[in-house]
C-alpha cells in the first residue's frame, strides 16, 4: 500500500510543527513541513497529499483573535483545495492553534455549510491565563477517523484561549445530536462534565475537540503530539513506562484509515 503523505503547514508563530510531523511519521505517513506563504502561492500542491495538519503555536501572534489571520488566509486562498482533500477521502487535523484556525475558517464544525460560517468560537479560558497541564479525554463520536468511540486517554493541554462556546443553544444541540463532539474533558476516573482543573478552560459541555460531518476533520485543543514517547508522561517515574503512549495512537489511526 502507498504511504500516505501529510502536509504540515506552518505560519509565522507556529511552533509545534516538528513534533507534529514526527508524530505522523511514527504513525506511518511521510510528512513535509511547509511555510504558509509558498503554499498559498501554490495551493494545488495539496493534491499530492492525503493529510493536512495545522499544528499548535501562536500564528500571527494571535492578533485580532487566535487563528483568525491564518484561517482567513487559508480559507480564501486554499479553501477549495482543502474541501477537495476531504471529499476525496483525505483527513485534516488541527491541534490547539490549528483547531482555532479550523474553527475560524468555518471548516469545523461545518454544520451549515462547509466553509465560511463561524458557528462556535474558542475564547479565553474561564481562568483567563495560559495553562500547561495534563488532561483526561474521552472520545464521544464514532465517526472520526482519528479516534475510537469510548476510548479514554491523557495528553497535555497548553493554551489561554481554549474555552469552546457555541453560537447558541441550537448550535450546541446540533453538535451533541449530530456526533460532532469528538472529545470531551473527563475526570481522572472518567467522571463526566468535570470542574476545573479537569475541564481546564470551562468549555461548554466539556468540549475539547470537534469533528465535522464526514468524520475526516478533527480539531482539538490538547496536544496528542506531546505524548509520543512513554517518558513524556508526567508520572512515568512512578507508574512505569507505558507501551502505548496515547497521543501516538491518534496519528496512527488516521494513517491506517488512509492506507
Amino acid at each position: 500500500m502507498a504511504t500516505p503523505r501529510a502536509l504540515i503547514l506552518r505560519a509565522a508563530g507556529t511552533n509545534c510543527d516538528q513534533e507534529t510531523a514526527h508524530a505522523f511519521e511514527m504513525g506511518g505517513a511521510r510528512a513535509d513541513v511547509l511555510p504558509l506563504q509558498p503554499f498559498l502561492e501554490r495551493p494545488s500542491l495539496l493534491a499530492d497529499y492525503q493529510i493536512l495538519a495545522i499544528p499548535g503555536g501562536f500564528s500571527y501572534g494571535d492578533d485580532i483573535a487566535a487563528g483568525r489571520v491564518f484561517g482567513l488566509r487559508l480559507a480564501h486562498r486554499a479553501g477549495e483545495q482543502i474541501l477537495d482533500l476531504v471529499q476525496r477521502g483525505g483527513a485534516v487535523l488541527g491541534i490547539c492553534n490549528g483547531f482555532q484556525v479550523l474553527v475560524q475558517m468555518g471548516l469545523l464544525p461545518g454544520l451549515a455549510e462547509p466553509l465560511g460560517q463561524v458557528e462556535v468560537t474558542l475564547t479565553d479560558n474561564d481562568r483567563p491565563i495560559y495553562q500547561d497541564r495534563w488532561v483526561n479525554l474521552e472520545v464521544t463520536t464514532d465517526r472520526c477517523v482519528f479516534l475510537k468511540k469510548g476510548e479514554r486517554f491523557s495528553i497535555p493541554m497548553a493554551h489561554a484561549e481554549g474555552k469552546l462556546v457555541p453560537r447558541d443553544d441550537a448550535t450546541l444541540h446540533s453538535l451533541q445530536d449530530g456526533q460532532f463532539i469528538a472529545v470531551r474533558y473527563v475526570g481522572p476516573n472518567g467522571e463526566a462534565q468535570p470542574a476545573y482543573p479537569h475541564n481546564p478552560n470551562g468549555s461548554v459541555d466539556a468540549i475539547a475537540g470537534l469533528t465535522d460531518r464526514t468524520g475526516r476533520v478533527l480539531g482539538l485543543m490538547p496536544h496528542p503530539e506531546r505524548f509520543l514517547f512513554p517518558f513524556q508522561h508526567p508520572t512515568w517515574t512512578r507508574d512505569g513506562l507505558t507501551d502505548t503512549p496515547e497521543g501516538r495512537q491518534i496519528f496512527h489511526n488516521a494513517v491506517q484509515a488512509l492506507r
Binding site: Q18, Y130, D132, R133, R226, F229, Q232, T235, T237
Partner: peptide
C-alpha cells in the same frame, strides 16, 4: 508560575518542573 509557561512544547519534556501524581 510554572503552569503559565509552556514547558512541554517541542515534545522533549521528560522530567517536568512539577512532579508527582498531583503535580
Amino acid at each position: 508560575i510554572v503552569r503559565q509557561y509552556d514547558h512541554e512544547v517541542l515534545a522533549g519534556s521528560v522530567v517536568k518542573p512539577m512532579v508527582g501524581p498531583g503535580g
